[in-house]
Design a binder for these strands. Structure first.
Length: 829
RNA sequence: GGGCGGAUGGCGGAAUUGGUAGACGCGCAUGCCUUAGGAGCAUGUGGGGAAACUCAUGGAGGUUCAAGUCCUCUUCCGCCCACCA
């Protein structure tokens, strides 16, 4: 019988067959009751749009190879999947197509699940969850109430980012260059009563613990550090002239205090009103302030915008030199950062320099630029922001600026002029959304009792059905009287429910914990099971979640540890951020119209070929350029494997001892062992799937070249062994094909994923003859096959007597002979 | 402005971490197989040169017996952050 080409029909039959077996026999179901070491592999769960795209395929294929590799290595592998199912697209669909968001979402999930199954991923489907499930979001509410108990969830009236397009508030993190991250419309400001989570309560830990995340990409750590934004500086007090109050300014550059020639307040600063009351230009100033306040905060702070400001007519005293300096108001000072007021040092801060030039404000140099020590204030064309010795700074003259930062800070503290302090960029997390398709925030407003949390036993606060979603007029739940009007849980009097829902980032901040006991209806998650599985050993997803999702998840983990529910500090030990999938040099996206539908590729080539291509084309962290030809290549390779294993494997149970092997046999055995070693290394030390696959291609090439007479049992055994090893090593990458071949070759396991990962024999890697490269003055001049155990002296004789080497040394005696054992010899003349 | 990555054949990418640059694959070329296939097999494929050789890892220097890899300067590209005081 001859096995022929691996056809589309055959591929389809085989892939469906094994997907069915995996499902029916629950091959990938796991429990924590195992003596094996655990390994938790997790990919960032998808928003269920219905269709999977190449980005998903890449993300999940990477995770699947890791999961299957670890299974075969004997780990108890948890590999779950679910859906980040709340959010605006469902509402938009509801508006556009007049469908129920829940119905729409669940039908998308069904489609998506089917597509994921067609890829052959090794998920434990028994743990599947969707964040819009009643049994999931109920625990969102439970966690929210726990946070409230601890003072970590609170309501605050504040000016918030408001997206008119989505008719909702946005977190700072969701505003990108002044535009809504989702609909790209311009974001404005609005005063609203909103729910916040006090993530700032964990800022120190969130920053410090980054240091321990050795297996996270450096840049993700840097991005989080940046976002948390710790900066050390000094709060300085500028006494106002004619008033009792002092203005506090924050600066990271106390070394420049003697050059502070004016003070600037943010327009929102609380002292502004008092200061400008009664000054001659009061109406004009008020108009200016109103104008700035109405402006979009993010546009206002755009880098290239011209700075505008006005003199208040008031003065303050520079605490260091007791000089009177004018007090200004300007749009480039933000109330949210520092003290909402700055001291301006035009000579050493470029923004202050431009502002001072524009408004003819005084300047004084206090740090000497070593490159042009004699330059005067009038000759300056830009601020000097570098280091140097202090000048015009009384007792600090001559002190290097770096030292002066510390010295002046301490001096001001002892003089009561200021206080050394630390400022953070991280803000509390605005969680309220005026949206329907999200988790209802479990609170009730009672005229008599005030804000009342919904009692635990009344959870979940269910999202009502049949709510009219128009996309207009704020929160849809507001227009749903049976939801809004409820009795107060405390006094039973008439009360109103909170109608805001939670931002979906809340849902995704703890789903990895829920997977540990996904079906538990009695608690948020089972403590014992979570402590068995957590933390996640390997997390995989896109770089776009480097800040928000990962920071929030870290925050939740720390909180849940503090209330005694888990025992780990950090949720994700290792993080792999996979690169984007490009086509024609651009990111694949619907709007660009350059997508390749995974389904159509599976249809033609099968899931295995798609998986193989996507892993082979680039290292996982790098961008991947889609290539129609290369997928053909992946299929070609699988076809060769199919033909090789199908036609050349002949069952026999001959034992072969090393003495009976000839040169070719030993050679193939060596290649087999080398492949095991290389591929195991590539998968263990970082995830070098591309080179692991090239190693498999090399092994197949060697097997193809190996001539074995079918009637020679020794050769057949060696051939069989090589083929079996190849199939085992290939199986995490292309599981369907390998399951089929493994079974044909007489598998004892139910699934190849239960077979043991092969190990190599270091002895078999040894060679009798090795190649030594000879160099003369560092240039390659010859190659010599010599016995592996050759001495340096013997090698030296061989090389130096070689005619070609002689030609290049021109008979001169070597000045130096450098020998790198087993590799290379360099003759220096 | 700050931070983090990159730059190697026609293309995707390798290179044991200082030791044969271009593994493996795609593409291309020439044959073979007459079982006409998304085949398969063989050979070749960085540039120059008939060859011996020689030049080549964005550019310029340097360290070294030896540099894609280390150091200094520089150009270009990508991503993230940013009136953050």
């Amino acid at each position: 019988m001859t096995q022929t080409v691996y056809t589309t029909e055959e591929i389809k039959k085989i892939e469906e067959k094994w997907q069915k077996i995996w499902e029916e026999r629950k091959i990938f179901r796991v429990s924590e009751n195992s003596s094996k070491a655990k390994y938790y592999v997790l990919e960032m769960f998808p928003y269920p749009s219905g269709k999977i795209h190449m980005g998903h395929v890449r993300n999940y294929t990477i995770a699947d190879v890791i999961a299957r590799f670890k299974m075969m290595q004997g780990f108890n592998v948890l590999h779950p999947m679910g859906y980040d199912a709340f959010g605006q697209p469902a509402e938009n669909a509801a508006i556009k197509r007049n469908v129920d968001p829940a119905e729409w979402t669940y039908s998308c999930i069904d489609q998506m699940r089917a597509e994921l199954k067609r890829m052959g991923f090794s998920y434990d489907w028994g743990r599947e969850l969707a964040t819009c499930d009643r049994e999931y979001y109920r625990w969102n509410q439970w966690i929210f109430l726990k946070m409230y108990e601890r003072g970590l969830a609170y309501k605050k009236a504040s000016s918030v980012n408001w997206c008119a397009g989505c008719e909702t508030t946005l977190a700072n993190e969701e505003v990108i260059n002044g535009l809504c991250w989702r609909c790209k419309s311009e974001v404005g400001q609005k005063d609203l009563d909103q729910w916040y989570l006090k993530i700032t309560g964990y800022k120190e830990k969130l920053l410090e613990d980054l240091q321990a995340l050795d297996h996270w990409p450096q840049r993700v750590i840097a991005m989080q550090e940046n976002w948390i934004g710790r900066s050390r500086g000094v709060n300085m007090y500028f006494q106002l002239k004619d008033f009792d109050e002092k203005i506090t300014v924050f600066t990271t550059r106390p070394d420049t205090i003697f050059g502070a020639t004016y003070v600037v307040l943010a327009p929102e600063h609380p002292l502004v009103d008092k200061l400008i009351s009664g000054v001659p230009r009061e109406p004009e100033i008020r108009r200016f302030i109103e104008k700035v306040k109405a402006e979009n905060k993010n546009l206002r702070t755009a880098g290239d915008k011209k700075k505008e400001g006005m003199f208040t007519g008031r003065h303050a005293i520079n605490p260091a030199n007791k000089e009177e300096v004018p007090v200004w108001i300007a749009d480039y000072v933000l109330m949210e950062y520092g003290a909402g007021a700055i001291m301006a040092v035009p000579t050493h801060d470029q923004r202050d320099f431009l502002f001072a030039k524009e408004h003819h404000l005084p300047m004084r140099m206090v740090i000497q630029d070593p490159a042009q020590p004699d330059i005067t204030v009038h000759e300056l064309t830009c601020a000097y922001e570098g280091e140097g010795l202090l000048i015009n700074s009384v007792q600090f003259d001559g002190v290097p600026s770096r030292e002066a930062i510390e010295k002046i800070g301490r001096w001001m503290e002892t003089q009561g002029m200021g206080q050394m302090t630390v400022h953070w960029r991280l803000r509390d997390w605005l969680i309220s959304r005026q949206r329907y398709w999200g988790t209802p925030i479990p609170f009730i407003y009672c005229d008599r009792c005030g804000l009342v949390p919904v009692p635990q036993e009344q959870l979940p606060v269910e999202l009502p059905k049949n709510v009219k979603i128009t996309g207009e007029g704020g929160s849809p739940l507001n227009h749903c009287p049976e939801f809004v009007h409820v009795p107060c849980p405390r006094c039973q009097g008439p009360a109103r429910r909170e109608t805001d829902t939670m931002a979906t980032f809340f849902d995704s901040s703890w789903y990895y914990l829920r997977y540990c006991s996904a079906k538990d209806e009695t608690q948020v998650f089972d403590k014992k099971q979570a402590s068995y599985w957590m933390p996640v050993d390997q997390y995989i997803g896109g770089i776009e979640h480097a800040i928000l999702h990962l920071l929030y998840s870290r925050f939740f983990t720390k909180f849940l540890k503090d209330i005694g529910l888990i025992d780990c500090d950090e949720p994700f030990i290792r993080l792999l951020t996979q690169g984007m999938v490009l086509k024609d040099g651009e990111v694949m996206s619907k709007s660009r119209g350059n997508t390749v539908d995974p389904d159509s590729i599976i249809e033609k080539y099968g899931a295995d070929a798609l998986r193989l291509f996507i892993l082979f084309a680039a290292p996982p962290e790098e961008q991947l350029e889609w290539n129609d030809h290369a997928i053909d290549g992946a299929w070609k390779f699988l076809n060769r494997v199919w033909l090789c294993a199908g036609n050349r494997f002949r069952p026999n149970d001959q034992q072969v001892s090393a003495e009976r092997m000839d040169q070719e046999d030993k050679e193939l055995e060596r290649e087999r062992n080398a492949a095991i070693k290389k591929i195991t290394q590539d998968l263990s030390e970082g995830f070098k799937f591309n080179t692991a696959i090239s190693g498999l291609m090399i092994l197949l090439n060697k097997i193809d070249k190996y001539k074995a007479d079918e009637r020679d049992p020794v050769k057949q055994t060696i051939l069989n062994r090589a083929i079996q090893t190849m199939i085992l090593l290939l199986s995490p990458f292309t599981p369907h094909l390998c399951e089929e071949l493994w079974q044909k070759m007489g598998a004892r396991e139910e699934s190849i994923s239960r077979a043991a990962w092969p190990t190599h024999d270091e002895e078999a890697l040894k060679q009798d003859l090795i190649q030594i490269v000879a160099q003369v003055n560092g240039k390659l001049r010859g190659k010599f096959d010599v016995p592996a155990d050759i001495t340096e002296e013997a090698l030296r004789q061989i090389i130096l007597s070689d005619p070609k080497v002689k030609e290049f040394t021109q008979g001169k005696p070597p000045r130096k002979f450098i020998y790198v054992p087993g590799k290379l010899a360099n003759i220096v003349v």
